[in-house]
């Protein structure tokens, strides 16, 4: 029987799967780790549905759940999915071939992984064009603190992507 939670979950997943995938790609290391993190985020998202009252935007809610799970999740607890019957639940499919852009994004992900975890989340949100107010709501810090952290993260990113970008 399809429950209300299931309908909402599928709807969120259909609409915001890329958002989850970006977080997974930025914080997961191996393929197994990414698979595990993806499923953990989905589980947390499912559990969060009854608490969603519609006060926050759905994207903010999902970003919050995804980032919190990626940053706070205790990887030592992931064994419960050890015997999972399913693997490769998601895969990325290229619709438009653009090797150069993909290489840039690949390097960008590599650089994001090297940033401190919090800075990485801010860069991710900034790349997605989230306003400071939304970032502040997701992280639970002031907008001015978001600004300070973003500037610092951008400097680090410029250093890590030397040769690709001129500096921000």
């Amino acid at each position: 029987m399809t429950t209300n939670s299931e309908i909402i979950f599928k709807q969120w997943l259909g609409e915001y799967n890329r958002l989850i995938y970006k977080v997974v790609r930025a914080y997961g290391s191996t393929a197994d780790d990414k698979e595990d993190l993806f499923q953990e985020i989905c589980l947390q998202l499912w559990l969060s549905i009854p608490r969603f009252e519609g006060r926050a935007k759905v994207s903010t809610w999902i970003y919050r759940v995804a980032l919190n799970t990626a940053l706070v999740w205790n990887r030592g607890e992931k064994n419960r999915r050890k015997h999972s019957s399913q693997t490769n639940i998601f895969r990325e499919q290229q619709l438009v071939e653009s090797k150069q852009s993909e290489e840039v994004v690949e390097r960008l992900y590599g650089a994001i992984k090297k940033l401190p975890k919090i800075d990485a989340s801010i860069v991710l949100m900034q790349l997605d064009g989230l306003p400071y107010s939304e970032m502040s709501e997701i992280l639970g810090i002031s907008e001015s603190n978001v600004g300070v952290k973003l500037n610092r993260a951008k400097k680090q990113l410029a250093f890590l992507l030397e040769g690709l970008i001129d500096g921000f």
């Binding site: 997943l13 399913q86 998601f90 895969r91 990325e92 499919q93 619709l95 438009v96 653009s98």
Partner: peptide
Amino acid sequence: VQDGSKLVIDTDILTKE
């Protein structure tokens, strides 16, 4: 790059998982 690609997910399998 985001717009030029899509994520293929079997939502039924994922929901079951």
